[in-house]
């Protein structure tokens, strides 16, 4: 293989990695936002709010991500809704992961000490204020580690966008391996690439959030 072909291969790989990172970040944003919204609806005392959230979670968590992507991409156009591959990638993955996230949100809110709810009632907070100012800030901190894991899962799920015509990291590694016959090398790079995005991007971000939000939860010297 000549050097020119190799350089093309590497630039394709680099582009694939960028696509994967971009889809991961955008879909994460959707997942976190929708996860919070649906999770909060899931714990609402109002049935009319709670039930749609339950249906959302059951549907998107209970069915295959790839099939969901196919629906967004191939089936919706039948009903006149044509979405670009990137839109499908970001929202398809984001929405699916948000259904798992919503359950994390619910668990974390339920796990906030009962005394916090009682003190909020004693101080006469409205339910909305109590959630916003007291419960959710504590729950967010508790759910962060689980979100870290979930976003790494999301990162790995992005390889499925290949099936809706986006060439991302895994598929570019595969074509590089196919073109050169060097499967060992390029799939080693593929493994490493995901690891680097997970450890270099997602974990530090979640850690940063954790330390940022941990005021009052760990003993620090008095100001």
């Amino acid at each position: 293989m000549n050097e020119f072909a190799l350089s093309l291969t590497f630039s394709a790989l680099a582009r694939g990695l960028l696509v994967t990172a971009a889809v991961t970040m955008a879909a994460s944003l959707v997942a976190v936002t929708m996860g919070l919204v649906v999770g909060l609806c899931r714990v609402s005392p109002r049935r009319s709010v709670r039930w749609p959230a339950i249906v959302y979670i059951e549907f998107f968590r209970g069915t295959s991500l790839l099939v969901q992507l196919y629906w967004w991409f191939f089936v919706l156009p039948i009903f006149g809704v044509a979405l670009s591959p990137w839109t499908v990638a970001i929202f398809g993955i984001g929405v699916c992961v948000s259904s798992y996230g919503a359950e994390l949100v619910r668990a974390a809110i339920r796990a906030v000490d009962r005394g916090q709810y009682e003190a909020s009632i004693a101080l006469n907070f409205s339910r909305a204020t109590m959630m916003r100012r007291i419960i959710v800030p504590q729950a967010i901190r508790a759910m962060l580690p689980a979100w870290g894991t979930l976003l790494i899962e999301l990162l790995k799920g992005t390889s499925l966008v290949f099936f809706i015509t986006i060439s991302e990291f895994t598929s570019s590694a595969k074509s590089a391996a196919d073109a050169t016959g060097n499967y060992l090398f390029f799939f080693a790079i593929a493994l490493l690439g995901y690891y680097i995005v997970a450890r270099g991007l997602i974990t530090p971000f979640v850690r940063w959030l954790e330390s940022h939000l941990s005021r009052g939860f760990v003993r620090i010297t008095a100001p």
Partner: peptide, 27 residues
């Protein structure tokens, strides 16, 4: 009515002063 609890139930993510002003401000 105001209440003080056996296990304090202070809001751990707020300082002592913030604990005392949260409800007066938002309620």
């Amino acid at each position: 009515i105001g209440m003080v609890f056996q296990h304090f139930n202070l809001f751990p993510h707020l300082t002592a002063l913030q604990n005392c002003i949260e409800a007066p401000v938002s309620v």
